[in-house]
Design a protein around this nucleic acid. Sequence first.
DNA 1: ATAATCAGTTTAATCGTTTAAGCAACTGGT
DNA 2: ACCAGTTGCTTAAACGATTAAACTGATTAT
Lengths: 331, 331
Amino acid sequence: MKKNVSLKDIAEKVGVSTALVSYVLNGKMEGRISKEVAAQIKAVAEELNYRPNQIAKSLKTNRTHTLGLLLADIANPFSSQIARIIENEANKLGYTVIIGSSDEQVEKSKSLIQLFLNRQVDGLILSLPENSEEIVSDLKEKGIPFVLLDRYFPEISTNSVTIDNYSAAEAAIKHLQENNIARIGIVTYETSLFHLEERLRGALESCNGNATVGKVRLGNIEEDVEAAITAFLNPENKVEAIFFLSNLLAISGLKYLNKLQVTIPDQLAVIAFDKTDAFDLFYTTITYVNQPMNAMGVEAVKLVQQAISGVPTETTVNLQTELVIQHSTTG
Amino acid sequence: MKKNVSLKDIAEKVGVSTALVSYVLNGKMEGRISKEVAAQIKAVAEELNYRPNQIAKSLKTNRTHTLGLLLADIANPFSSQIARIIENEANKLGYTVIIGSSDEQVEKSKSLIQLFLNRQVDGLILSLPENSEEIVSDLKEKGIPFVLLDRYFPEISTNSVTIDNYSAAEAAIKHLQENNIARIGIVTYETSLFHLEERLRGALESCNGNATVGKVRLGNIEEDVEAAITAFLNPENKVEAIFFLSNLLAISGLKYLNKLQVTIPDQLAVIAFDKTDAFDLFYTTITYVNQPMNAMGVEAVKLVQQAISGVPTETTVNLQTELVIQHSTTG
DNA sequence: ATAATCAGTTTAATCGTTTAAGCAACTGGT
DNA sequence: ACCAGTTGCTTAAACGATTAAACTGATTAT
């Protein structure tokens, strides 16, 4: 692998010091440098196809222009979509993104964050698993710029970008009630993640007790979803609609409902929190809570960039969702 | 943001030189260092919670332990799945991965690769868009370690990990023929990407002219897929089965077939190249060509790591696919 | 004539590591 | 008593950039 062209190479070829080359190529000290030399330096840089070594630059400036992005799992559509948006947005601002998947494990999160920090990222965008409070307070204490995305911890005040989970769930239930659906089965994860608790709270408080909840363990999604649905379909439960509190739960659920040949919406209404491309292949369109993915990504990058540039805020950006009404609840 | 602990801090606290600290913490010069001092250094490092600055390390060693991964679009399931596998595999070997999405554009690919190189990545894993031959030969010439993934250019010999697209398509068609399906509609992209050409060639050569091809423009997937399917369904074409040469095409296609209320497999058989979670929500299971995603990721990382460590190979790893036969072709 | 100003450039320190080379104090063989 | 070899450590250069400070002539002001 050929050695890269360095400032020194240019300096030697032109016959000046590396300092001058640096000044010229960075456009500093404009006006204090003779036009001819500047032009020559630029020409030689071009000729040798000079690319600054970001590593060296970073060492000196203490800025890597890199962000660490921690997601639950880059292979799941919610994560990969948001990753894409953040990648774009970060690139626009001159940042590169390193991504890691926590698999909802605190230990993995810790070690990925440590890895990010060892690589001197300028800031972090984090979607943390449950029980990560310690991670958050650690980062706060160390003064590392970060922003929480999607998941947050109400007892710790931080920069964060979230959606209004409570209202979103509430709106979903209201919509069902307006369509004369009273008894609702709610499928959620067995978790202490605040955003999911809020969704559940929003749903339950709107249901006035007319709800059955099925909790799903992370390691056992398929089976537990099936168990929950089976319970819902037990005639004595009289469930008329299922509200899935995440898109993965909805996929599992719809798959099972397909298998059971329960027809949507005739025998059962369905509503999902967050959408996925997969819904497109279902025989009927699915009503869902639409998350403003783009805004989430954009705001997260904006906030972390603010934090990096030293603005000492603890800003919570709370975004509104939109209920997209389709045939699975109105058929 | 607090300053990080450096070798110097440890050295001062213990009262030795930074060199010694470095030797101890890297386990070099074992036996030439007194056990007591070594222990003390380690203790202080632990106490101060020392984390080596990877940037400084990289500058000196010329190794960043970072890989650049270029994908078509991290938001699409094929890309994000492979990204996940590569991330895991790379992490195991001590590499961090930076991901970029080319959006099938050569210019974007170039600038992302340049960005990767500016950040001194040790190697590249690339899924390039069409007409990227120049990029590949450039990299070859510069001696930069890289491996092509999924897409490759037959006229340029490089490290690459691919599947046997020809055989895969052939097997798919053979399967249809065994089920007495003769007239086949093939949906592919309008592209010169070799892997897609191979799929098409494999399919066509097995069809003995009994095929109609629909080509889809990248910017216009939805509409063009619909147009292709409309043509297939024209009675004079007598198409009995549709073979989608990529999962995104299949999603679009199935969605449209849903809309048209064409029943699969009764009125039409369907077979897809590569699968996606979305198939799970279709009312019938879809026969598809299964790509060995895991092996692809693993082999790609293995090859690039070999290239990085200086093994001067031009190895093509060609993996076999598996036809997963389900109801969409056998109903 | 002398000092001050200014343009144009260089010097040299620095970021946090790594690592070859050097050095001092022992040990042991002859 | 002397050289060689070992042990245990330090020195200092280097990686490739940035940047404050210094320097050199020339020009202008007093």
